[in-house]
Amino acid sequence: MLPLTLDLLPVLLLGAILGLDVVSFPQAMISRPIVAATLAGAFAGQTAAGLVVGVALECLALETLPFGASRYPEWGSASVVGGLVGTRGADGALLPEPAAWVIGVMAAIATAWLGGWTMVWHRRLIARWARVRLDAMAGGSMRTVMSLQVYGLTADLLRGAALTLLGLLLAWPASGWAVESWRLGATETRGALVIGAAGVAASAVWKVLHGYSVTRRLFVAGLAVGTVLVGLRG
């Protein structure tokens, strides 16, 4: 049932490190899907397909603005799950196997949603630890400050690993079933997925950048230029 063909421990470590990067340390955005899913694909020996899965997920992540205390999807560990599940059966091809790609994107979305909740629980847990240490902190205890920092980082690392494991446990069998049962053509499946991902990205660009003058016109002009250039190239 589990992806035993993969070395599970390194994969969980990757999920943990990328989960940690989202908020706690170092926020270098190695947790962004376009990097994280590519790395996950590389772990499975499917780097090129992993990148394509990552591109689809990056389109979805564009609409996530990680503002402070709000709850938002956690794409780091989720992209590891999506990258591994989505590249299943790619066999070195440049594009993912269509059914696996669909299930990989769905698995990443579900894991990212759950990941948002685990981040809330993680913050509540640290708040509980902080509450019982407030007196020591008010006394200027360096040890207390350091320990709270280390506990928080360690708990986040474990959160990422557990989330990755859970995502893989649920999505890996589903991808196997989907690959065997899939009837829709490869081109049509890819087309449907790309319409969805690109549509979300286009709306995200519109929503995120609309606050500044001229941005909408620049976006539409860019779309026109890009579409014409693709047409000429094709």
Binding site: Y212, R216, G222
Partner: peptide
């Protein structure tokens, strides 16, 4: 934001075209 909007417009058709297999 202005630069990103322009890049977004050009990038999305190219990325979509490659992702469906060219």
């Amino acid at each position: 934001a202005r630069g990103a909007a322009l890049v977004a417009g050009v990038a999305l058709p190219f990325a979509a075209h490659r992702a469906i297999g060219g």
